[in-house]
Design a protein around this nucleic acid. Structure first.
Lengths: 110, 110
DNA sequence: GCTAATACATAAGTGAATTATGTATATAAG
DNA sequence: CTTATATACATAATTCACTTATGTATTAGC
């Protein structure tokens, strides 16, 4: 189900990369996409996701567009130019981290 | 230098696996081994390591032997049978986590 | 009509880390 | 010879990302 502690510190990276790959998305959609991509192994909670989206927005990495779908509100997020750049950095950092961990734990990945 | 947030949640796994691979070790030695294995990318801090060792010991995953090296104290840690089993589980969990993350982030590892 | 899914949000609490501090011996440098 | 660095342990205060809990409201399925 959930990889518990390991997931910590990866949420921003996930959000940024998913937005980079799939373009404009709203919060709930992100949770579903991540659920799909991870075959239900990573389930983002709202209590973690929304504050993260707000934080990334306040840092200028995301921009928003609010829409009304019928009577229901949807807030779409898109990467800014800065966001796209940071997304790239974060993914690279993650890959580097994995390589380092593979050495320390002496495991073969892939 | 440090992979910042990503490292969180990996410390127990690192300690257990390093002890599994290298047998009896003392705290300071673990920090040096991890530094070596990671080519100075992972630098364990004492404030994180010692409480973790104490916790793993209190959970019965590690056992200790205190020695005097001249006038200096050294506390050696070894995996218990339970510890060896959990070490295996934690590494497997980590590898699984990496595979999931690779799918979500659409990156190739290895 | 009720439950689950969709869709947002925030506040309280947790817990693993960081940072700071403390003790003490050994060694290298200047 | 004294000062800085390395060795070697330990713990307390703080931080901060996340979990858990709660709240509001619409829509779809049974």
């Amino acid at each position: 189900m959930h990889s518990s502690e390991l997931l910590k510190g990866t949420l921003q990276t996930i959000v940024l990369k998913v937005l980079k790959d799939y373009g404009k998305m709203y919060g709930y959609e992100i949770t579903q996409r991540v659920k799909d991509l991870s075959e239900s192994r990573l389930l983002l909670t709202e209590g973690a996701l929304y504050p993260t989206l707000h934080k990334l927005e306040s840092e200028g990495l995301l921009k928003t567009e609010t829409m009304m779908m019928g009577k229901r509100v949807r807030k779409y997020y898109t990467l800014t130019t800065a966001g796209r750049s940071i997304a790239k950095d974060r993914v690279a950092e993650f890959v580097d981290f994995i390589k380092t961990m593979s050495n320390v734990l002496q495991v073969q990945i892939g």
